[in-house]
Design a protein around this nucleic acid. Structure first.
Lengths: 349, 349
DNA sequence: GAAACCTAGGAAAACGATTGCCGTCACGTT
DNA sequence: AACGTGACGGCAATCGTTTTCCTAGGTTTC
């Protein structure tokens, strides 16, 4: 790793340029009134020494660190990443850096991180997590603003940015109805999981609005492919007829799809399939590619960061803010134009 | 988000406790010689004001920030996360915080991050990325130590911690040979990808050591399930006989497995299947669960962080350090004890 | 009872950068 | 020649903390 040079200070720069530190500072920050020649000399000295102003020292004055903390409630993973990236986008533009803290689902660890972040004088904190469920606030009367993203705070005065999962479920059902499927089943995650309950309830309600109902009560289980396959088996075994399955996750949908195909049902001809999450890995692996609800996690992260910045600048936006989901339609709900496999008769070209 | 309290300073604490700031500092840090009663009084005042020492101000003296930067070369994702978590483990013990910077594969952005991190006076930098390929150093003569994790630096004097992919491939082949499979095919990612080439070369070499060779030249393509399926088709169509397929990724393996099963080959009875990455999502979704090579990314992150800490403390470890991979054996290479599906005859219990 | 010695805690100088204020110099004006 | 006026830069305070040095007492010791 080569020779480690020492960090140059503004004193070094000033000395090299033959001016006082105050003048050097002004020269580098475009303040005060200096001859252009002086500025040039200082800038050249700074360049030569690879000078980078010590942010810590600078922050001592401004009272701001241009730094935010991001705490994940549980483990950082598939859902936190896009949120993180969105937040980074929004914050990067404001030249802010992010401290990442992985709570690992341990409240003690989490509290420790909060203390650390506060001692580092972050300008604000974003809290996120794998579950959309409301959670206890990370602290009360904290000296910096906090925004919850994806997950929400149990305190309604906190600012939370969440996906409109119910709306997403409604869009899925709307789509299925629009393509003429009325005998819909719903297979989803564990019933102690907020997302599963919310999506199932919205599904049932939306169908009720049309005077319809699910062909069977929602099947609660897990979020895995295995559960999808198992649930599909239950459905097939019950003898219930159905022409569409709306699944609580793409993984479930994939498991369902595999099981249905194994049982001789064609997708989408016999059964239309809709997933949730729009997770590329599952979407692309599924046969055929899966129609799915996208929660726009990156947009969510961006929005959360923007609200945090606003709060830092004195304009907080308390309350729960729901962002719309959108449906990405693929071949699991629409007959492909030209199908490479066996497909129902139709004009071939 | 409630009332925002101002950050208390040590001056506030000192005033409340009725001592000077110097004394307050000593009391809180266990320095100097003070009466126990005085210490108690100061601690109580600090507690009452929710005092957290301003890390920036403190760092001004110590010259250290107890902070490291983590830069991802490309996008933060499936490979960076475990590395990040491992690093967090190792650093968290040292009370260090992590600045996360997502380079998004843009060198300009990356250089900007390096500057930012330096101005924030991080004690060190960890560079990681999705590809194991050697990359240009993020800088020369930087004032802080740098460790590359997963990805490696093109400068051999830099410290890089990488998985021993070749060793992993050898272990996979060892295992296949041990279970009596000698007609092995290899399907992997694009040949411009370092990992694909390294693994393929190691595979070929290991077989050569036994006087064997692949049943066909390695099939280079992509990392996806789709490619796996396609490649399996090629293999089947060629008429080549094979009793095992070693795949460059779990996704490929899954695609291969699905295609083989669709073609009537039983796994592992007819064809044993080994993946690479040991990615839970793919492993569990595959039927049967996939034997796979695990690169121990978390251990890699931990090791990288430990080496960084050592370097910060004056004991750098230049060079490329390869960490062993290990093979996780599952049912795609071992006949299950009791099989729920059709299985070759054998004592049923 | 005085010299020597602790001990507790205060005062002030750092750390690195910013910024308001003020002095100085070179002009131009009357 | 005396004065006013910009322009240019230096000085010093400031941010919050740590740390060194120092002093004012009280305690020991002979």
């Amino acid at each position: 790793m080569g020779r480690l040079e020492r960090h140059a200070t503004i004193t070094d720069v000033a000395a090299l340029a033959g001016v006082s530190v105050g003048t050097a500072s002004k020269a580098l920050n475009g303040r005060g009134s200096l001859r252009e020649e002086t500025r040039r000399r200082v800038r050249e000295a700074a360049r030569q020494l690879n000078f980078e102003a010590n942010a810590g020292a600078r922050n001592l004055h401004s009272g701001r660190t241009y730094t935010v903390g991001m705490i994940t409630t549980d483990t950082i993973g598939r859902f936190s990443i896009p949120v993180l990236m969105g937040a980074e986008d929004a914050l990067g533009a404001g030249e802010m850096s992010i401290f990442l803290c992985d709570g690992r689902g341990d409240p003690i660890r989490e509290q420790y991180y909060v203390k650390t972040l506060l001692s580092r004088r972050v300008d604000g904190i974003i809290v996120t997590g794998r579950r959309t469920e409301a959670r206890a606030p990370i602290g009360v009367g904290l000296p910096v603003p906090v925004v919850y993203a994806f997950i929400s705070s149990a305190d309604p005065d906190d600012c939370s940015v969440v996906p409109d999962e119910a709306g997403g479920a409604r869009k899925a059902i709307d789509h299925l109805l629009a393509i003429g499927r009325g005998r819909i089943a719903h297979i989803t995650g564990p019933d102690h999981h907020n997302s599963a309950r919310v999506r199932a309830a919205a599904t049932t309600r939306r169908l009720a609005e049309e005077g319809l109902s699910l062909v069977a009560p929602p099947l609660f289980g897990g979020w895995s492919e295995a559960w999808g396959g198992q649930a599909a088996g239950i459905l097939l075994g019950s003898g219930t007829e159905f022409d569409a399955v709306f699944c609580g996750s793409d993984q479930i949908a994939r498991g369902v799809g595999d099981a249905l195909r194994a049982a001789g049902r064609r997708i989408p001809d016999d059964v239309a399939l809709v997933g949730f999450d729009n997770w590329d890995v599952m979407i692309e692996g599924a046969k055929p590619p899966l129609t799915s609800v996208d929660m726009n996690l990156q947009g969510l992260g961006r929005s959360a960061a923007e609200r945090l910045l606003a709060a830092i600048n004195g304009s907080p936006s308390p309350g729960v803010h729901a962002l719309p989901c959108h449906l990405v339609v693929r071949e699991s709900t629409t007959v492909p134009l030209r199908s490479p496999q066996a497909s129902p008769p139709g004009p071939a070209g």
